[in-house]
Amino acid sequence: MTLETRDTMPTARVRDILVLIAISLVAFVVIGEVTLRIYLEYRTFYDVEMSRYARLLKIDAENPRVGHLHRPNSEAELMDVEVRINSDGFRDDEIRSNSNGTHRIIFLGDSLTFGWGVEQNETFAHLLERRLDAQSPTEVINFGTGNYNTEQEVELLLEKGLDYQPDQVVLFYFINDAEPVPQKSRFPWLGDLRIATFYWSRIKALAARWSDSAGYRDYYSALYRDGSEGLGRVRVALEKLRDASMDHGFEIQVVLLPELHELVDYPFRDEHAKISRMLSEIDIPTLDLAPAFADVTNPQELWVAPDDAHPNAKAHTRIADSSFNFIHGPGAR
C-alpha cells in the first residue's frame, strides 16, 4: 500500500506514517476496550475475571514465600458469583478468636479450595463443614487462595493459621501445586485494560494450540519430572507441615483433587502416584479423589464454564461427598 501524499520530503512521509500508526493504535485500544467492556456485560471470560480477581481482591504479602494474600474486607463479583473476603483475608465467615471446644479444621489450597466460580455456600469447604458439624461441633476455616502452590499454602498456615489453634489441617492438593511461586507482573496496571488481558491470554492459548508442549497435559507432566525444582519444593513444604503438626499437635491430611479435563482415562495417574508416594514417605495420610471421578464421561459438565476447568457446584458436591469419610475418619480425630 502506498500513501497518497503531496509531500516530497521522505522525512515528512515517515512522520506521517508514524503518526498514522500511533493514532490507529490509540483508536483501536479505545474502541476495543469500550466494545469489550460492553460485551463483558453479557458474557464472562475466565482470563478477564482472573485478572479482576488479582486487581480487586489480592495484595502483596510481606513474606515473599507467601507471595500474595487476600485484601481483608474486600468483595467483588467474579464469574457471576459474589465473593466476600473476611477481615482475616479469607473467603469465609468471620472467625471467632476462640474455638470454644469446637473441632477446628483449616483447609489449605488454591483457587479450587477457594471456590472459584461457585457460591460460598456451594464450596466443598462449606458443604463439609455442614456435614461434619452435624456429626459433632466442627468449624472449617477456608484458607484457599487463588494461584497458591503448596509452598505458599504451608507458609500461610505457619504465618497465620497457627494462631487459630487448629485441631486438624487438610491440604487439598492440585496438579499445578508444584509450580514455582508466581511472580508479580511488572505492569500490573495492564490488568485494568480488558483488551490487554484478552490479547495476552488469547495469544497464549493460540500458541498452546500450535505448540507440541504448551498444552495442559505436557505442562503439568513436566512439573513432575524427576529432579524438578517444583517437586523438591513441594517435599520441603510438606515436611514443614508435618513438623508443624508434631510441634503444635494437630492432625494433617492431604486430599488429591483431580484435574477435570479427562476423568475416565485419567492422564495424571503417574503424577498422582508420585505425590502419593512422597506423602507416604513423609507419613501424611492421603486420599486420591481421581478414582472417585472415573465414571464421568463428560468432564465439562463439572466445569465452571467452557473456558474454565475449575470445579463447578456439582463437582464441589462430589468432592465433599468423596472426602467426607476420610476427613471425618478415626485417624483424623
Binding site: 485478572s51 491470554s201 476447568a309
Partner: peptide
C-alpha cells in the same frame, strides 16, 4: 480450555 490455569497475580 486447553491451557493450564494462568498465572494472574
Amino acid at each position: 480450555q486447553s491451557v493450564p490455569f494462568l498465572y494472574q497475580i
